[in-house]
Design a protein around this nucleic acid. Structure first.
Lengths: 200, 200
DNA sequence: ATGCTTGTTGACAGTGTGCCAATAGGCCGC
DNA sequence: GCGGCCTATTGGCACACTGTCAACAAGCAT
């Protein structure tokens, strides 16, 4: 009945396993999912997981890496606008992306590795950095290392606000948009006048 | 040589196990630490962990619960000040707390349960809610549910900024303080004029 | 001292994980 | 269309880990 044994291109099989794993991990914590389950869900022998990912944890990290990334920016068209307008449009697009794609992305704001395991932290950091780059580009600002650093924390803020809005309903969409837009501007703006000290 | 068997008050033994566990978890991920190690580190038989926490995971969550909480607010003295001044002083105190206490607290901004396991998420949420309450109190604002919700996301922002500042050095302390103060004010301020729509 | 309460232990059974040699799918040249 | 090779895939082995439970003893009360 079931096709006996199917030989796939490595990249394809790898992806298939990741997809099945994401499904399982989407409603059960890491250690509550056994490799046997993962293998079954992917329709594959247990050993193959180790063959492709070496480790159970490594498969998990692969799933994370995919889930955390924001969709590529199809954000175009608006060139003559001011920075304020661009910021608002960008955040508007991000909010849209959050509703459709970002189930997992939004969830990535919580806490994870309070503990050493900086694996996960590194993955999220990388994703936040990309997001910062995306926003900078959309604002028409240079891809400066300092500016990126300045913008990175707003990724955490954005995710947290989206969670309040989507999962708890304590924000309206407009409120979220207003606050995030203002925040983004605040964080890039401060940097543009770095020589502003109050104390003598 | 080693004291044969020592009988402790439940609360005391429990705490001892948690402390030992935190140490281990501080530089190794959850699944890389075995219960045997946890037991050894605490100088205790393996079975006792299950006796006190039932589950390996439950011990882990207990460690999280402790690590995520901010120190109680010894923030007093400034009553006649304006909201702006209060905000700045509050954030200043939080930055101090982050340097001394908050090793783990700061790290709690990463990613957690991309996966279902909302256990951890719930713990962090609770901690953020407390932090929001603390800030509201310091600002002299009412402990409104709406205001708390509005302030909660700034906890994620604060942690992220602290991480940039402390671990990467991409922020100066003053910059962090300025930005966070402004952000806090932004998030509570918007709410004070909730009837502010641009569109007809 | 002696008994009782209960914190603490050690072993047992079941399950999950990583590893590796054996198997077979499918593309190649012939 | 047929045989052969490359390698994706499998299944089982050995080991480690986890949760449970009945037996044990530390310290208090009488």
């Amino acid at each position: 009945m079931t096709a006996t044994r199917q030989r796939l291109a490595p990249a394809e099989r790898r992806q298939q396993i990741i997809d099945a794993a994401r499904e399982l991990y989407s409603d059960r914590p890491y250690d509550a999912v056994s490799t046997s389950e993962l293998a079954d869900a992917a329709g594959v022998a247990r050993g193959l997981i180790n063959h492709y990912f070496g480790d159970k944890r490594e498969l998990f990290l692969a799933v994370m890496r995919e889930s955390v990334l924001m969709p590529e920016r199809p954000l175009t068209g608006l060139d003559g606008k001011s920075v304020e307008e661009r910021a608002r449009l960008t955040m508007d697009w991000i909010l849209d992306a959050a509703t459709t794609y970002g189930q997992a992305w939004v969830a990535a704001s919580g806490a994870a590795n309070l503990h050493g395991s900086s694996d996960i932290q590194a993955i999220v950091d990388e994703a936040d950095d990309r997001a910062a780059r995306l926003v900078l580009d959309a604002l028409g600002l240079p891809d400066d290392a300092r500016l990126r650093a300045r913008l990175r924390p707003t990724a955490a803020l954005t995710k947290s606000v989206c969670r309040e809005w989507l999962q708890r309903g304590t924000f309206t969409r407009v409120e979220a948009l207003d606050l995030l837009t203002a925040s983004i501007l605040l964080f890039v703006q401060k940097d543009l006048s770095p020589v502003k000290e109050d104390r003598p």
